[in-house]
């Protein structure tokens, strides 16, 4: 058994376990933390795929910035325990289960049909990987320029919208 397989097993196991914990755990702060752990495990998987840049972005943007803001909001509202017992939402639960089974079956089918995964580029994991950053940069500003610019406009709109909403007086 190669070392990479061991790391993969640990990281993917951690990702699945913490993703489950995120949903199951009752305390919102612990939920957020489980999500942090999930993103961290996913970053480790990216490193295994010889994509350390993606891994770093995953940790910086998701685990380091967005989830800190989540935590900030949870703490600011001082949510200690999820309110229990009220509104069991029976229909939504059944619909949710159906959706889960459908999407899960779809994913499983696609994975099984795809066959053996492509071999990652030679050079192996972090440290000796090819420099992917210039390639990524070039792609962003050539092939994906429109999508890239559209996304940045979208983010700007969201920021301006949030500002307007927060500044609006309720009179």
């Amino acid at each position: 058994m190669s070392l990479e397989l061991v790391v993969f097993a640990i990281a993917s196991g951690l990702a699945i376990a913490s993703a489950l914990a995120m949903v199951v755990v009752k305390t919102p702060v612990r939920s957020v933390l489980s999500l942090v752990l999930t993103f961290f495990a996913l970053a480790v998987l990216s490193v295994l795929l010889a994509a350390p840049f993606i891994a770093a972005l995953q940790v910086i943007v998701y685990a380091g910035a967005i989830l800190v803001l989540f935590l900030f909001v949870v703490m600011l509202l001082n949510l200690t325990q999820e309110a229990e017992g009220h509104d069991e939402r029976p229909i939504q639960r059944v619909l949710g289960l159906i959706a889960v089974v459908a999407i899960g079956g779809l994913l499983l089918g696609v994975t099984l049909k795809a066959g053996a995964p492509p071999v990652p580029p030679a050079g192996g994991p972090i440290g000796v990987a090819t420099d992917e950053i210039p390639i990524l940069g070039r792609l962003l500003f050539s092939d994906y320029l429109l999508a890239f610019e559209a996304l940045s406009v979208l983010l700007l709109l969201a920021a301006v919208g949030a500002l307007i909403l927060s500044k609006r007086r309720f009179d």
Binding site: A56, A63, V68, I126
Partner: peptide, 20 residues
């Protein structure tokens, strides 16, 4: 590693969780 500084920023941004 070829992501050098990003690695540092990644862990620096995780360190905040300790204090929070």
């Amino acid at each position: 590693v070829n992501i050098g500084i990003l690695y540092i920023f990644a862990f620096a941004s995780l360190g905040i969780y300790g204090i929070v």
